[in-house]
Simulated scan of single mutants.
Amino acid sequence: MPKKLPFDTIAEFIHSLGERGKTAKALDINPRTLTTRLENPATFTLAELQRVAEYGHTDLMTVTMLADHQIKNPIDPPAPALGRPARQH
């Protein structure tokens, strides 16, 4: 059974984990790659989703469901850091 989190998307969940550069390092991916994943969660690998789950102290099913929800309901990812404006497309 997946955990109930106060987020609807994987982008919101990852944003809640802290500064994006530190999160990318903890997930063992380049910060630019993390930005790509947040914009298009279909690009996450299974291994990356597992690392997100471990780093966020949750389970793989939960992060997979968050990613799936975002794929079906696209959003603009949160700004890279609190108080900073989102990157313009």
Rank of each mutant, 00 (worst) to 15 (best):
K72Q: 12
E39N: 15
E54K: 12
P85L: 10
P77S: 11
D68C: 08
T23W: 07
P85M: 10
L46R: 13
E54R: 09
A47M: 01
E48R: 05
P2M: 09
A86K: 15
Q70A: 06
G21Q: 12
K72C: 05
A24S: 08
P80D: 03
P41C: 07
A26H: 11
T33G: 06
N73L: 09
K72L: 14
T64G: 15
L82A: 13
R32V: 14
H89Y: 11
D76P: 00
L38Q: 05
A81Y: 12
Q50K: 15
K25G: 08
D68P: 00
A81N: 10
K4Y: 02
P41V: 07
I14D: 08
T62V: 09
A26S: 13
A67M: 01
R32L: 10
D28I: 03
L34F: 05
L66A: 08
R20L: 12
R37W: 14
R37I: 13
A11I: 07
Q70W: 06
E48H: 09
F7M: 06
A67K: 00
Q50H: 09
M65Q: 14
M65A: 14
Q88S: 14
F13G: 07
R37P: 02
T36G: 09
A26V: 04
T23N: 11
A24Y: 11
T43V: 09
T33H: 07
A24T: 10
V63R: 05
R87W: 05
H69W: 15
H69F: 15
A26E: 13
P31R: 07
K4I: 08
A24P: 07
H89R: 15
L34D: 02
T62S: 09
L17V: 05
R20N: 05
D76E: 14
P41G: 03
I75E: 04
D28W: 10
T62Q: 08
T33R: 13
L17Y: 03
I14W: 07
P78T: 05
P2H: 00
P6I: 04
D76T: 15
I75H: 02
D76S: 14
V52W: 06
D68Y: 14
Q88D: 12
L5E: 10
G21N: 13
T62W: 03
E19M: 09
L27T: 00
R87S: 11
R84V: 13
V63S: 02
F7T: 01
Q50Y: 07
R84A: 13
N30P: 08
P41K: 03
Q50W: 11
Y55Q: 04
T36Y: 04
G21F: 01
H57T: 10
L60T: 06
H57A: 13
F13V: 00
P78Q: 04
P2D: 02
I14N: 01
E39P: 00
